[in-house]
């Protein structure tokens, strides 16, 4: 019975007429937030720049899911599915970061912030990338890389 009630509630909410004005309003807010994130992003705020950008993106994403994707009209299962997927994303982000931050320094990639080793090169084939570099420095660099 619970399922039937939930679908009736959802059908009722979806039926309810909001008018197109709500979508235009959300669109305006999204554009303003985009402007804000571009302006604050260009200031290159030292420490909390990333946090601020992610908070703005989260607010924008919430508006899109709630109003454009109608999650605000949906009940129960739909919300559960969406929030659980977000929870898994956060878990998947947290665990590898904890690992990278706390593991034995020697096992991090050389040249990175958490390693004492110097990188042998930057990891790219500057002189002759297989396509790009090779094409551009045609004939001028004839050295071979011993990979």
């Amino acid at each position: 019975m619970a399922i039937a009630n939930e679908s009736r509630q959802e059908a009722h909410n979806m039926e309810e007429h909001h008018g197109a004005g709500r979508y235009w309003l959300i669109w305006g807010v999204l554009l303003v937030l985009t402007l804000v994130t571009v302006i604050t992003g260009r200031m290159h705020l030292p420490s909390f720049g990333l946090v601020l950008a992610l908070v703005i993106a989260t607010v924008k994403g919430t508006l899109v899911t709630l109003y454009f994707m109608h999650l605000i009209d949906h009940r129960g299962a739909n919300r559960l599915v969406f929030s659980v997927s977000i929870l898994f994303v956060l878990l998947m982000l947290a665990v590898p970061l904890l690992d990278l931050g706390t593991r034995f320094r020697g096992s991090n990639p050389p040249g990175s912030q958490y390693s004492d080793l110097q990188p042998p090169d930057i990891g790219a084939n500057v002189k002759e990338g297989r396509f790009g570099g090779g094409v551009r420095s045609h004939g001028s660099h004839e050295q071979s890389e011993g990979h």
């Binding site: 990639p109 990891g123 084939n125 500057v126 297989r130």
Partner: peptide
């Protein structure tokens, strides 16, 4: 990007940024 060479991994040949991790 294909023109200036900011490409993934070993195809990277952009000389403006030569830092470890840039190709990544």
């Amino acid at each position: 990007k294909f023109h200036i060479g900011t490409l993934p991994g070993r195809y990277y040949f952009y000389e403006g940024i030569q830092l470890p991790g840039a190709p990544m």
